[in-house]
Computed example of a mutant assay.
Amino acid sequence: MHLLTASVLLITTGLSNGDKTTILRLPSPQTTKSYVKLQAATPAMTALTACLRAKTAFTGSGNSHFLSYAAGGMDNAFLFAYNRNGAIYSYVFNSNKDTSVFKVDDGAWHHWCFSWNNRGGKWTVYKDGMPAAAGTGFQTDKTIPANGVWIVGQDQDRLGGGFDATQAYVGDITSINVWNTDNVNFAAVANCGDNFGGNVISWYDVSKEIHEVSTYRKDLCKLK
Rank of each mutant, 00 (worst) to 15 (best):
M1S: 11
L15C: 11
L15P: 08
S16W: 09
G18V: 10
G18Q: 15
K20C: 09
R25Q: 03
T32N: 01
S34K: 13
S34W: 12
Q39G: 09
T42W: 03
T42H: 10
A50H: 06
F58A: 08
T59S: 05
G60Y: 06
N63C: 04
L67V: 14
S68C: 09
Y69I: 07
D75W: 08
F78S: 15
L79N: 11
N85S: 06
A87E: 14
I88T: 08
I88K: 00
N94F: 06
N94L: 13
D98G: 13
S100P: 03
F102K: 05
K103D: 14
V104L: 00
D106H: 00
D106Q: 03
H110G: 01
H111M: 05
W116Y: 02
W116R: 09
R119T: 10
G121Q: 13
T124H: 00
G129M: 10
P131C: 09
A132L: 10
G135C: 04
G137V: 02
G137Q: 08
T140E: 14
D141H: 08
K142S: 15
P145C: 06
A146W: 07
I151D: 10
V152T: 00
V152Y: 03
V152G: 04
G153D: 01
Q156E: 09
G160H: 12
G161V: 05
G161H: 11
A168W: 04
Y169A: 02
G171F: 02
G171S: 00
I173A: 08
T174S: 12
I176E: 10
W179P: 11
N180M: 04
F186K: 10
A188V: 03
C192M: 12
D194C: 08
N195S: 14
G197S: 10
V200Q: 13
D205C: 05
S207R: 07
E209H: 10
I210C: 12
T215H: 00
R217A: 10
K224V: 02
